[in-house]
Amino acid sequence: MLVADKISREDILTELFNIGVGQAASTLSDIIDKRIGLTIPNVRILDAATGKIELDKYLLQVAEGAVMVSSISFDSQLEGKVSLLFPADKMHHFIDLCLHENRDDLVDNLEFTDIDFDTIKEIGNIVINSIIGELSNTVNIPVEYTLPEIDVLNNASADHFVNCEDCRLVLMMFLAFNIEGTEIAGAVVINMTLKSLDEILNEIDRLYNGR
């Protein structure tokens, strides 16, 4: 595979995912009645080892390595696991912004209630639907999955997210949420099988490059 080809495929994926998260931003704006910005600056296709190094770099920047994670495993024709990560210490403020609440006493606290988890489950569902759904629609390959599982992990490492034996590749992207001037930087990690990614890339080549 030529380097130029790879860059071009990553650019196409970036474009695709941005269309998806654009729709997610519009849905969330409608739900919470606030203007929301949601962008993915770039998508990188990495082998599992490099993906882990890059992800660990992100986790090092997160306070105490504590992240709130929405994750789903998907199967059918495409197989893998997608995780949406947010710095846990920013989540109370983020949730408060979404719920039009203001609880100063809870800011930076790492304790979450079922209500907080449900809020993130909904946001995770919308964002992951937008990313995977757009990809699945564009390449016309069906994907099946359930609602996301939500968890808070302390001292999280990349092994938590890139751990499937058959999944040798990682699609890694950063996600910038902007609600009323407050920016929250998340990360999206899609760990998938080589076969799945090959299918996606071949379809992209066929659709965009006429190959």
Binding site: T27, I115, K121, E122, G133, T146, L147
Partner: peptide, 26 residues
């Protein structure tokens, strides 16, 4: 009776992936 519900129904009917609306947000 809101756009987010109609687009969720449309996506669910065509693609089939599940949808979740939380009591906190709604």
């Amino acid at each position: 009776c809101r756009p987010f519900f109609y687009s969720a129904v449309k996506r669910l009917a065509t693609v089939g992936n599940p949808v979740f609306f939380s009591a906190a947000m709604h």
